[in-house]
Amino acid sequence: MEVAYIIETLIKIVVILLVFSALAGFGTYFERKILAFMQRRLGPMHVGPFGLLQIAADGIKLFTKEDIVPTNAVGPIFKIAPVITAATAFMAAAAIPFLPQFTIFGYTVHPIVADVNIGILYILGVMAVGFYGPLLGSLASSNKFALISAARAASVFISYEVVTGLSLLAPLMMVGSFSLIDFNNYQAGGIGDWIIWSQPVAFVLFWIAAFAETGRTPFHLVANDHEIIDGFGTEYSGMRWGLFFIGEYANMFFISFVIVLLFLGGFGDGSVLGALGFLLKMSFFFFFFLWTRAAWPDIRPDQLMWLCWKVLMPLAVINVVVTGFVMMF
């Protein structure tokens, strides 16, 4: 029993790692294609059918590129920073149920690595640790653009963690559990039971904060190409830079899963249809990340802080208070 459990967990971990590392590669392809179609271009199209082999070409390039560590950089920290980004992204995945449980060859599989009873808290905590990747990477690379990026990373991530936490508080009060599976079961009754209908404000706030947590476009100040080159990634090359990328895309996928599980019913009653709907909903949120990148300009750091502390945080607090009153009376 014990050995079987360990083997099952190891297999799950390997599958999640492989699937989402590959998906991160496909994510870059989708992003290029979608951005291209929205801007009336063709995107990658020369390597393979529809440019699909571009991912392989990029992979070969990243793996074979020379791994440069600048002379003035702090070696060990510089080398470990990209690993932190990628590792924390995948660690967060441990508490996410990716599919409803299913039976294969008479063996029931729970597609979640560890169903801890504090699931969502664990995910938030590990994602909070993720900001050490950009932060340490930029502090260690002794580059002025990277330093600006570090300052922005620290301020953006701390501020938006407040919004994420406060916006989640109201749905948590309703469900009364931190486990994502409990969240799913709470909404299993169908579309009418989804938390988005009772907590629309919390949903929008969490969604906005998700853009900041993953560093996607309207809040892409940490690595803004047109003013600070690539921010924390300026001095990185080859696969170390690639690890930052894998971490970012994996985070986008995982946060899309979390949004759907928290607010949009997750996999519902656990039927095949529910599982398909789960993946479709998740894809929509991933697509929305790319859509926003094509449609919105980046905003200034001071606007970002204004939005966080003067608009989103008061809204989140009011939402919690109102929810409390409604639940009490």
């Binding site: 808290l121 938030l124 905590g125 909070a128 640790v129 900001f131 620290a154 963690e161």
Partner: peptide, 16 residues
């Protein structure tokens, strides 16, 4: 989880 969120996420970020 609180240990990770508070000490690593918040306190250490202030040091940073």
């Amino acid at each position: 989880a609180i240990q990770i969120i508070v000490y690593t996420g918040a306190v250490m970020a202030l040091y940073a």
